[in-house]
Amino acid sequence: MDFYILAQQLVNGITLGSIYGLIAVGYTMVYGVIRMINFAHGDVYMVSAYVAAITLAVLHSFGVDSVPFAIISVLVVTCFITGVYGWTIERVAYRPLRGSTKLAPLISAIGISLMLQSYVQVAQGARDQGVPVLVSGALRLGTDKDFAQITYMQLVILVASFVAMAILTYLISYTTLGRQCRATQQNRHISAVLGVNTDRIISSVFVIGAATAAVGGVLVTFNYGSFNFFIGFVMGIKAFTAAVLGGIGSLPGAILGGLVLGLTEALFAGYVSTDYKDVFAFALLIVILFFRPYGLLGRPEIQKV
């Protein structure tokens, strides 16, 4: 019996963790190239949930009934539109402030965050919105009384997250763009002196981060079925925590941090108390940062004199 509870919490934790990881990617990559915490990232995720719902509604009005087709096209369209949001935010709110103080883009990020929340609230209403359940049913393990289950939607989440992470890793490790991203991350000025158009790379990073968050947004929307204009805040904080936990600036760190955070929450919720799961998760963050100030996979920034 205990085995099934454990297995169930592990499944839940990994699913939740991979969503955190997807969103944490945006924080960590942006921090990597411009050393800025993009506080609007959680709200970009929130926007992507709305875009997903609208896209689904449009597809439905065209009479699209195939569930796999609907999920895939919603993913593609949402990634694209959310990517445009990411690009625009960087272009309008951050790039003009580059070269001014470090705090200026941070403040404008908070501004963008509030703006997105208000804009969605006014345009879409403050009430919870919902999408119908597209994928139901579950794989069950065990007897009728004691069992662990993985819903088909959780499977979709795991597969989609895995594929998104694989594409991202490939992009960063093996393409020219990825190489230039890594170079820009290590030293923006030197990259520019070597002919890399760093502004373009920074824009690309925002687009990639937003699109990855959109994958998370679509999956969460389909999984829980309801969302509102405020979901970006908590999710943003959690994903940011995951990024810090894994070592901000490190892409594998973001994924690992997301998984650790998701598993911690799920296990704590399963064995101790659901109400205190966030308290425990953040307490864990404090403990880990106490022993590894740069996160699990982070590297200290070396200040040379």
Partner: peptide, 22 residues
């Protein structure tokens, strides 16, 4: 770029004409 390999350091310095395209 200390965290990149020697050959990657040289590759970053190229592609000046053809822009990196996603």
């Amino acid at each position: 770029f200390r965290e990149m390999t020697v050959v990657e350091n040289l590759l970053v310095a190229q592609h000046l004409d053809t822009e990196a395209n996603l």
